[in-house]
Design a protein around this nucleic acid. Structure first.
Length: 578
RNA sequence: CGGGGCGUAGCACAGCCUGGUAGUGCGCUCGGUUUGGGACCGAGAGGUCGGAGGUUCGAAUCCUCUCGCCCCGACCA
């Protein structure tokens, strides 16, 4: 392409609306423009980059036997009602009515549509396994779109679905996809980790999340310094050092604690207890099987509840902290003096769930359910009727790894770039997708679901690969392999040399951007750096000696190269596969 | 949904408090000088001040409503 005719509206200044680096650079480099909150247009440069990502996705999906589909983005409500998600998903789904008043929605994902095809067409175990995928637009009415292309309301996703006869088949399909994902992210030049994650409302037994480390990310990942353990904090655990409690009294003792409202208050109160010797009592209202239920969550005083773990443990569809009046009605006291001891006597409907960190603990201190009073000498298992034990606490940096002996967890920010799920039979059962086995018995197809966000890959690449001058594209994603910068287009010799080099490079199989604009050299260098083309060939005064300059965007090194050798050299650098 | 901020030329912003000719820088057009890291001089074009209503002789400025965008939190497949 000739830059003079190509649409690359670069910006000198940071746009006011952009906060994170990738957002600023994607706008400044003329790659995307915002249309509305969480809705962006790809400009020509952006479209080239997106197509590069998609090319990698297609190659790697096809390599593991994937067959590409293209499904509708507009879905009838019935399909989602069958799977149960029409009701399970709230405002995140864009819903609309057609002219006849029938409910429709814009697809957030395509389990339902793919499953409906499978149930209509797949009859026999002989037709399995199948690996189906598509690259398609998704719609999610995010409560808060943000950070440029990181959290969007419409975005492109590669979603794949596998259909197997049994669990073993699913395990193989899942492993195939996992490897494909590793190749995809590696080829796209994104540094990533594979972590354990919550499956959320997708359902299913196991899921792996692919994350890219970046401070702009929204997820917290705990990973071990020593072994390969890594998990989203919504799932991560750690080994806690044992605490030896002395044997307390035979029964809890109530004592007055005027003005004590917080864990910290009680820790410093004379006759109180250190935070790790306290039982923290939190009151929530959870929606389980469609019904609201009061829940007491118990944790060690110095531990933080993780709401995703909590929700997962309860199997709840919604969760909210109880309001002050509800708390008083249930327990007869205000937050600050709450406890689980004998709590069921006043509130029989109460469900008590306790964190594993409280198991075996004795002689603890907690609220007495009487304002300004606490109980000491509480032995958790003796004194509290715990209905369920679960891992509820949030791990923090520095805690010991749960998997190995010597590792320590580090918690860092990352963004989700891909997620793979073993769905099992959730959708095939609810939607009736079965095959006949050898014995002629119908069994539900065992499914997996696998997603990668195209914009997330682009964002992660920019977040991880840029400098003060702009983007440094990984070679795989770069919109062009090389830019030819003619320092002065009014110099006929330079211009002619540029034109010839442009054609020669193209004939050598390279994607070339010829900067033939009537601009000063400085402007061209700045723009070339900003849009991040891996290599720049500069045609300047040395052309009279038959020399050009080759600049490496990543290393910032430049070298003089003979004009008649430059094509071969760039070809070798930019197309290492040849 | 709660809290905060912001909507003025293509972009970044000032003007608003204290009502009275709508401004600066970049970009854009034309002319000239320049030409290897975002040049300089001169001349220009470009605005329903997000929208509606109100107060006032007079509103970018004050009041009410409304729409939109950004950030923090909640939420998030």
């Amino acid at each position: 392409m000739r830059w003079s005719q190509y649409f690359i509206p670069t910006l000198r200044e940071d746009p006011a609306d952009a906060e994170v680096v990738s957002h600023k650079l994607l706008l400044r480099a003329g790659i995307v423009r915002q249309l509305s909150a969480g809705i962006y247009s790809y400009l020509p440069l952006g479209q080239r980059i997106a197509l590069k990502v998609m090319a990698v996705l297609r190659e790697e999906m096809n390599r593991v036997g994937g067959q590409e589909f293209y499904l509708p983005a507009l879905h009838p409500a019935e399909l989602w009602q069958e799977s149960g998600r029409w009701g399970a998903i709230g405002d995140d789904m864009f819903r609309l009515k057609d002219r006849k008043g029938a409910d429709m929605c814009l697809g957030m994902t395509h389990e339902e549509v793919f499953t409906s095809i499978a149930r209509n067409e797949i009859r026999s175990y002989k037709q399995l396994p199948q690996v189906w995928y598509q690259i398609q637009i998704k719609f999610r009415d995010e409560p808060r779109p943000k950070s440029g292309l990181m959290r969007l309301r419409t975005f492109i996703m590669k979603d794949a679905y596998t259909f197997d006869l049994d669990r073993e088949g699913l395990d193989r399909s899942f492993a195939d996809q996992r490897e494909a994902y590793q190749r995809i992210f590696t080829r796209c030049g994104v540094e990533f980790s594979i972590v354990e994650a919550s499956s959320g409302s997708m359902g299913g037994s196991e899921s792996n999340e692919f994350v890219a480390k970046t401070d702009a990310g929204e997820d917290l990942i705990a990973s071990c310094s020593n072994c390969d353990y890594a998990a989203n904090v919504e799932k991560a655990t750690s080994r806690l050092p044992l605490i030896e409690d002395e044997t307390g009294p035979d029964a809890p003792e109530e004592f007055p604690t005027p003005g004590v409202r917080t864990i910290e208050d009680l820790a410093t109160f004379p006759g109180g207890a250190a935070a790790n010797r306290q039982v923290k009592t939190l009151v929530f209202i959870a929606t389980i099987d469609g019904k609201p239920l009061p829940i007491l969550a118990l944790l060690r005083g110095d531990h933080q509840l993780h709401e995703v773990k909590f929700t997962d443990a309860l199997g709840a569809t919604a969760l909210r902290p109880a309001q002050a009046e509800e708390i008083r009605e249930l327990l007869g006291a205000s937050a600050g003096s709450l406890g689980a001891v004998r709590a069921k006597e006043s509130a029989p409907a109460l469900f008590i769930i306790a964190d594993l960190g409280l198991q075996g603990r004795r002689n603890m201190t907690t609220g007495a359910n009487k304002d300004d009073h606490h109980l000491r000498g509480v032995s958790v298992e003796r004194d509290i009727k715990v209905d369920q034990w679960a891992d509820l606490r949030t791990v923090t940096s520095g805690e010991p790894c749960p998997r190995c002996d010597s590792g320590m967890l580090e918690v860092y920010k990352a963004m989700e770039i891909g997620h793979i799920f073993k769905l099992g039979t959730k959708y095939s059962e609810s939607m009736g997708a079965t095959v006949l086995t050898k014995d002629g018995k119908p069994v539900p197809i065992v499914m997996g679901s696998y997603g990668i966000g195209v914009e997330r890959i682009i964002t992660a690449a920019v977040e991880q690969s840029h400098d003060e001058n702009g983007i440094i594209w990984p070679k795989t994603l770069a919109p062009f392999d090389v830019v030819v910068t003619v320092t002065n287009v009014k110099d006929e010799k330079l211009r002619a040399a540029g034109e010839k080099l442009y054609k020669d490079l193209q004939h050598a199989g390279l994607e070339v951007l010829l900067d033939d604009r009537d601009e000063r050299a400085g402007v061209k260098f700045k723009d070339a750096d900003l849009i991040g083309i891996p290599y720049r060939i500069t045609l300047g005064k040395k052309i009279v000696d038959g020399m050009v300059e080759l600049f490496d965007r990543r290393t910032k090194q430049s070298q003089d190269v003979k004009l008649d050798e430059i094509v071969a050299q760039v070809q070798k650098l930019a197309l290492p596969g040849l």
